[in-house]
Amino acid sequence: MLMFASSRVGSVSAGRISNWIGHRYTIVVASTIFLLGSVLMGYAHAYAVLMAGRCIAGVGVDFSLMIAPVYSPKISSPSSRGFLTSLPELCISFGILLGYISNYLFGKLSLKLGWRLMLGIATVPSLALALGVHRMPESPRWLVMQGRL
């Protein structure tokens, strides 16, 4: 129940934060929050720390789930908008598949190391997203809201 409530914090606040700092930097915030949650889960020494990491990661995931599907059609041309709108759904499914495959492989490691890698490996895509989004343009809607054309 706590994880459900904490992930809703990300959903509710993502829109306001994106209006304040822009879609690009909201994605960076989401990636950073998810990165922090992943690191906490990977290095957890107690159950409470593991659950805190899960809750923090849930906030980051919901930030991303609210902003990425809105951001991609805003920056795309009309000819590719439909493809880019459905791309996050495809990537989510592909990410789930990669998670199952990597967890299967990490499951063959020792118990002390395997579960830590299963949870900590999520730092890699969140770090790549946080760094890669800096090369992407800001949303035209946000730029107009800021008085910048």
Rank of each mutant, 00 (worst) to 15 (best):
residue 148 R to C: 02
residue 74 K to L: 13
residue 24 R to L: 02
residue 28 V to F: 09
residue 120 G to S: 04
residue 103 N to G: 09
residue 12 V to Y: 12
residue 135 R to A: 13
residue 65 L to N: 08
residue 137 P to Y: 06
residue 129 L to C: 13
residue 89 E to I: 12
residue 148 R to W: 12
residue 64 S to M: 13
residue 32 T to D: 00
residue 53 G to T: 03
residue 18 S to Q: 10
residue 90 L to F: 15
residue 143 L to P: 01
residue 48 A to H: 03
residue 84 L to T: 03
residue 91 C to K: 05
residue 104 Y to I: 08
residue 79 S to F: 07
residue 108 K to T: 13
residue 97 L to C: 11
residue 39 V to Y: 03
residue 64 S to E: 10
residue 120 G to I: 05
residue 56 I to G: 02
residue 70 V to R: 10
residue 129 L to S: 10
residue 55 C to Y: 08
residue 61 V to P: 06
residue 85 T to Y: 03
residue 106 F to T: 05
residue 90 L to K: 09
residue 144 V to N: 09
residue 74 K to H: 13
residue 134 H to W: 15
residue 71 Y to V: 06
residue 23 H to L: 13
residue 124 V to W: 10
residue 102 S to Q: 11
residue 101 I to W: 14
residue 74 K to E: 15
residue 96 I to M: 14
residue 21 I to E: 01
residue 53 G to L: 05
residue 103 N to C: 06
residue 112 K to C: 06
residue 85 T to L: 09
residue 134 H to C: 13
residue 93 S to P: 02
residue 145 M to G: 06
residue 124 V to L: 15
residue 136 M to Q: 10
residue 14 A to N: 04
residue 28 V to E: 02
residue 49 V to K: 00
residue 77 S to A: 10
residue 109 L to W: 07
residue 45 H to W: 12
residue 90 L to W: 14
residue 114 G to P: 09
residue 96 I to T: 11
residue 45 H to Y: 09
residue 99 G to Y: 09
residue 17 I to T: 03
residue 26 T to N: 05
residue 149 L to G: 12
residue 53 G to S: 07
residue 94 F to A: 13
residue 148 R to Q: 12
residue 137 P to W: 08
residue 25 Y to C: 00
residue 132 G to T: 04
residue 63 F to G: 03
residue 94 F to Y: 11
residue 52 A to C: 07
residue 1 M to A: 14
residue 139 S to M: 07
residue 98 L to M: 15
residue 35 L to P: 04
residue 91 C to Y: 12
residue 11 S to V: 00
residue 50 L to R: 00
residue 83 F to G: 12
residue 121 I to H: 07
residue 29 V to L: 15
residue 55 C to E: 05
residue 60 G to N: 01
residue 105 L to I: 12
residue 103 N to Q: 06
residue 129 L to H: 09
residue 15 G to C: 01
residue 126 S to C: 12
residue 136 M to H: 03
residue 133 V to T: 10
residue 83 F to A: 13
residue 123 T to D: 11
residue 41 M to C: 10
residue 21 I to L: 08
residue 86 S to W: 10
residue 144 V to D: 11
residue 22 G to R: 02
residue 6 S to M: 13
residue 43 Y to F: 15
residue 138 E to V: 03
residue 70 V to S: 11
residue 135 R to K: 13
residue 88 P to H: 04
residue 124 V to P: 02
residue 117 L to A: 05
residue 138 E to S: 06
residue 6 S to V: 06
residue 73 P to W: 07
residue 101 I to A: 12
residue 91 C to V: 13
residue 62 D to R: 09
residue 13 S to G: 07
residue 132 G to H: 00
residue 143 L to C: 05
residue 131 L to V: 08
residue 51 M to T: 05
residue 81 R to L: 05
residue 20 W to G: 01
residue 97 L to H: 05
residue 29 V to Q: 03
residue 84 L to D: 07
residue 82 G to Q: 07
residue 80 S to H: 15
residue 83 F to M: 15
residue 7 S to C: 04
residue 16 R to D: 08
residue 52 A to M: 07
residue 72 S to I: 14
residue 57 A to L: 14
residue 13 S to W: 10
residue 92 I to Q: 11
residue 79 S to G: 08
residue 26 T to W: 01
residue 137 P to Q: 04
residue 119 L to S: 05
residue 99 G to K: 06
residue 91 C to T: 12
residue 72 S to V: 14
residue 36 L to M: 04
residue 98 L to D: 01
residue 27 I to K: 00
residue 15 G to Y: 07
residue 45 H to V: 11
residue 75 I to M: 04
residue 89 E to K: 14
residue 52 A to H: 00
residue 119 L to M: 13
residue 81 R to Q: 10
